[in-house]
């Protein structure tokens, strides 16, 4: 069992948990993820690592309940435990594994959308600890969905917050902020955009226009997370990659977001859900935790 040392609600629907998992904490790096399973009947749910403490042997996960299984996760309290918790899975961010001197030369821009702020945070923190200050844009629909603001402020070079409805920070989508920053004379050698698929798609369209190479983190349907099931295959350029072993981070300009989103849309739209119900009976309830199907 993997004990939850601290469970807290960050906003009305985003949760944070510090989980005891010494083997994961000893070996993980930013960009990697874990798979958690609550009990015998539960699904295996992939979640990106938000923070880790090697000394304490703990991993911090942050999630937004988007299906039956993550709804159940949200009911766990401090002192409860996950039956299974495995990782670190996937490859670390290249920024943490490439030659540090080369990385230091890069002007970096992170773009985080909603709960995607959680996987961006450890990367920015790691870079900060290694003497690199990156600019960070955090975008969310509304003020209530902004998370980790203080933590991010402590490690980012410049932090730009924007909300779609203008309730906090700048007003408008992250793509607008990217364009504004560049118009203001900022130059970036690389962008790392993590958030909902639609945000990553438009961030990539914007950075392509601005000629900024861009990395995105894909979070497709997954079962085992070790390369065994092939469910997480993603079209990257002409190649088929498995997000769990080849990713989760890929060159965003090579991802066919329309194909990737079609797969997710099956779970997301009413039409898609109705179709699924027709085709697959009652077996799909959005419980996979990946698609946001029933929210």
């Amino acid at each position: 069992m993997y004990k939850i040392r601290k469970a807290e609600k960050l906003t009305s629907n985003i949760y944070s948990m510090v989980v005891e998992a010494p083997r994961v904490a000893e070996h993980c790096l930013p960009g990697q993820f874990i798979i958690a399973k609550m009990d015998e009947e539960g699904e295996r749910i992939p979640l990106t690592i938000c923070d880790y403490d090697r000394e304490e042997g703990t991993i911090t996960i942050v999630f937004q309940p988007i299906g039956a299984s993550t709804e159940k996760f949200a009911t766990l309290k401090t002192g409860d435990a996950f039956e299974d918790f495995v990782g670190p899975l996937g490859r670390p961010s290249e920024l943490c594994t490439d030659d540090l001197e080369e990385v230091k030369k890069l002007k970096l821009l992170f773009v985080a959308g909603g709960v995607g702020t959680a996987p961006v945070y450890p990367q920015v923190k790691w870079l900060h600890e290694h003497g690199i200050d990156a600019d960070v844009i955090v975008g969310a629909k509304t003020k209530d969905l902004i998370i980790l603001e203080k933590e991010m402020e402590a490690v980012a070079g410049n932090l730009y917050i924007t909300t779609d409805d203008g309730s906090y920070g700048r007003s408008g989508l992250v793509t607008k902020v990217i364009e504004d920053l560049v118009a203001e004379g900022k130059q970036y050698d690389r962008c790392i955009a993590i958030g909902p698929m639609i945000m990553m798609k438009f961030a990539c369209l914007t950075t392509k226009k601005l000629n900024i190479p861009t990395i995105v983190s894909m979070n497709p349907i997954m079962v085992d997370g070790t390369g065994m099931c092939g469910a997480c295959r993603v079209a990257v350029g002409d190649e088929i990659k498995f997000a769990c072993v080849d990713g989760p981070e890929f060159d965003g300009h090579l991802i066919d977001f329309n194909v990737a989103m079609k797969r997710q849309a099956m779970y997301k739209t009413e039409e898609g859900q109705a179709l699924l119900k027709l085709r697959e009976g009652d077996t799909h309830h959005g419980g996979c935790g990946n698609c946001g199907g029933d929210k």
Binding site: E41, E43, R44, S69, V223, R279, E280, T283, H285, G287
Partner: peptide, 9 residues
Amino acid sequence: DYDTPIAHG
């Protein structure tokens, strides 16, 4: 009684 979905083709 298990949560994981499967396709019923």
